[in-house]
Amino acid sequence: MENFIDFKGKRVLVTAGTKGAGAATLDLLRHMGATVLTTARSRPAKIPQELFVAADLTSDAGCHAVATAVRERLGGVDIIVHMLGGSSAPAGGFQVLTDDEWRRELDLNLFPAVRLDRLLIPDMIAQGHGVVIHVSSIQRLLPLPEATTAYAAAKAALSTYSKSLSKEVSPKGVRVLRVSPGWILTESSMHLAQRLAKEAGTDLEGGKKLIMDSLGGIPIGRPSTPEEIANLIAFLASDRAGTITGVEYVIDGGTVPTV
């Protein structure tokens, strides 16, 4: 029986593919036959040197280095998964968000995708096909004023940019989609749960509940796993999803309470 999804011969770039959902996506696509190049600031031992680029994607130079590596090592690209994102902004609401904090959030969550797309999508258009997946966040719909205003705004900008890009390049053979996770069970999120638990005088499960409560609750009662995010991305990137473009897929256990 044929595999439901086959990526044999596909050339893929996954940004931030060394941890969490990025690593799960990289592993799954490779298991399905793709050749996957990834990038981060430092290389973990499990990723072959020839399929890794050490780069700071918050800089224009870093994005150019990755685009060059894609052409030289893969000979082009069929699928781009923009996984890079995160936040280092302090808690304290809008008043603590200086211009530098705002720039850092935009440099991490918006501009890497904009720059890499500008560098690589023309090659996709020239070959007549390609898939671009922008990983956003439900925070664009559910910003937490105490801590995630700038991050949420940057992800909202990424989503608007992605929609506009899809309208421009889909007629030229390049599908553009968005995946918006809610809370993902990663090593860093477990550290956060442990810290919150300690501060509240409770256990790890209590810390996880504090996070879920801050999001207004998760109807299925748990966060998504990195592997579940990777499964969705793999389907959307595959030929099985050949008529899907310009839309957003939320994977959050039902966290977003509206239609």
Rank of each mutant, 00 (worst) to 15 (best):
E227K: 08
G207E: 04
E205C: 02
A147Y: 00
S180A: 15
L210V: 05
G206Y: 09
L215T: 05
L142Q: 12
L116G: 04
L144R: 15
Y151K: 13
Q139L: 12
V169F: 06
L120D: 07
K172H: 10
L204G: 08
E168T: 13
A157E: 13
K155V: 07
P223V: 01
L116M: 11
V179A: 04
T160C: 13
L196Q: 12
A156V: 08
I133A: 00
E228P: 07
G217Y: 05
M190L: 11
R175M: 04
I184F: 01
S162H: 07
I125G: 08
S180L: 01
H129D: 13
L210Q: 05
S214Y: 03
W183P: 05
A230D: 05
H191A: 14
E146Y: 11
E228M: 03
A150M: 07
V179K: 04
V114I: 09
L236H: 04
D213H: 04
P122H: 05
S162P: 08
H191G: 09
A152D: 12
R195I: 01
I133E: 08
K209W: 01
L165D: 01
I184M: 10
E168H: 11
K163N: 12
F235N: 06
P226R: 06
L119T: 03
A197D: 08
E205Q: 15
F235S: 05
V174R: 11
K167Q: 15
L196M: 10
L165T: 09
S170E: 12
D117H: 01
L142M: 15
H191E: 14
A154W: 08
S180G: 14
L215D: 04
W183C: 06
G201I: 01
I229R: 08
K167T: 12
M190Y: 00
I218L: 06
V132D: 03
T148L: 09
Q127R: 13
L119M: 11
Q127C: 08
R178L: 12
A156G: 15
A126G: 12
G207T: 01
P145D: 14
S136W: 05
R195Q: 15
L236Q: 05
S137E: 11
A230R: 07
